[in-house]
């Protein structure tokens, strides 16, 4: 759609965010947690380029460290949800019959509950924490992988190369893991990119609501929420982490769109929605 440069810019943003997350300790000039009660609510200055928050912490340092939770939790959720979805989709498409019917229904039901309300209820009843967050993001993400892989396997199963493999007496495991999964990999990668964007978005929303990571952990969603009460006087506390989050999501989406075009799917239609 927007061409090669958009994908490049997107990939660039994601790489920068990853570098910030990994080398936060080397890049940030100040500790994200050290409070300076004589320097609270200061606007952007040379010493604090993005200002300070209500307890005098450096917003720039917190924005840098704040990239860790969305990227870490998002990646973990994509790996977990992707593994579940790909495995079940493979089984569903390959075995067919009642297995397919049952798994398909489970995926439908999963998709018939809006992810955020399910996440809110789960985190409220089960308690927050990083693990719960990853679990709930994966649990709401797997059906997309499931559908993509299942429909791919169904169309590939009757294809020539699978028939050829059966003829040479290849085992089912070999057909599934050595051939069908690599065959579906480009689609899975596209799905994972879109799911990563969804996971980061949901993590930020849940942290904003106070159900994700807890203070004083630096996290963009949480920072936007905590700065909201100071919006009239100290807009920078909310606005900068908000911009960081928008940029990251924009990067992932631009890269994802470019990838989807490359893989030759019609952009964002059907199962990839």
């Amino acid at each position: 759609m927007a061409g090669e440069w958009a994908g490049l810019v997107g990939a660039g943003i994601v790489v920068v965010a990853c570098v910030l997350a990994i080398f936060a300790a080397q890049i940030a000039r100040q500790s994200p947690d050290s409070q300076h009660l004589l320097q609270v609510l200061q606007g952007p200055s040379a010493q604090h380029p993005l200002g300070t928050d209500e307890v005098g912490r450096d917003v720039l340092s917190r924005v840098i460290y704040g990239s860790r939770i969305p990227l870490g939790v998002g990646s973990a959720a994509v790996v977990l949800g992707g593994a579940i979805g790909v495995a079940l989709g493979m089984i569903s498409g390959y075995v067919g019959r009642w297995v397919d019917a049952v798994l398909g229904r489970v995926a439908d039901i999963q998709l018939s509950i809006p992810a955020i309300i399910l996440a809110v209820a789960f985190l409220a009843l089960r308690g927050g924490g990083l693990l719960s967050l990853v679990v709930v993001l994966a649990a709401t993400g797997w059906p997309t992988y499931y559908r993509v892989v299942r429909s791919h396997v169904i169309s590939a199963r009757t294809g020539n190369f699978v028939t050829a493999l059966s003829v040479i007496a290849a085992s089912h495991w070999r057909i599934m893991f050595r051939h069908l999964i690599p065959d579906a990999l480009p689609l899975v990668v596209v799905t994972a990119t879109l799911d990563f964007s969804r996971a980061v978005l949901l993590e930020a929303g849940l942290s904003y609501l106070g159900l994700g990571v807890q203070p004083p952990t630096p996290d963009w969603g949480l920072m936007v929420a905590s700065g909201q009460t100071q919006l009239a006087g100290a807009w920078w506390i909310s606005v900068f982490p908000g911009i960081a989050l928008v940029l990251l999501l924009l990067g992932i989406n631009l890269f994802g769109d470019w990838l989807a075009d490359r893989v030759g799917r019609r952009t964002r239609s059907g199962v990839l929605q």
């Binding site: 930020a204 908000g242 989050l245 928008v246 924009l250 992932i252």
Partner: peptide, 15 residues
């Protein structure tokens, strides 16, 4: 459309 897709609702709201 691409930009709106990347703005979480709570950030849009706060802005």
């Amino acid at each position: 459309a691409v930009v709106m897709q990347s703005i979480p609702v709570f950030i849009l709201g706060v802005f």
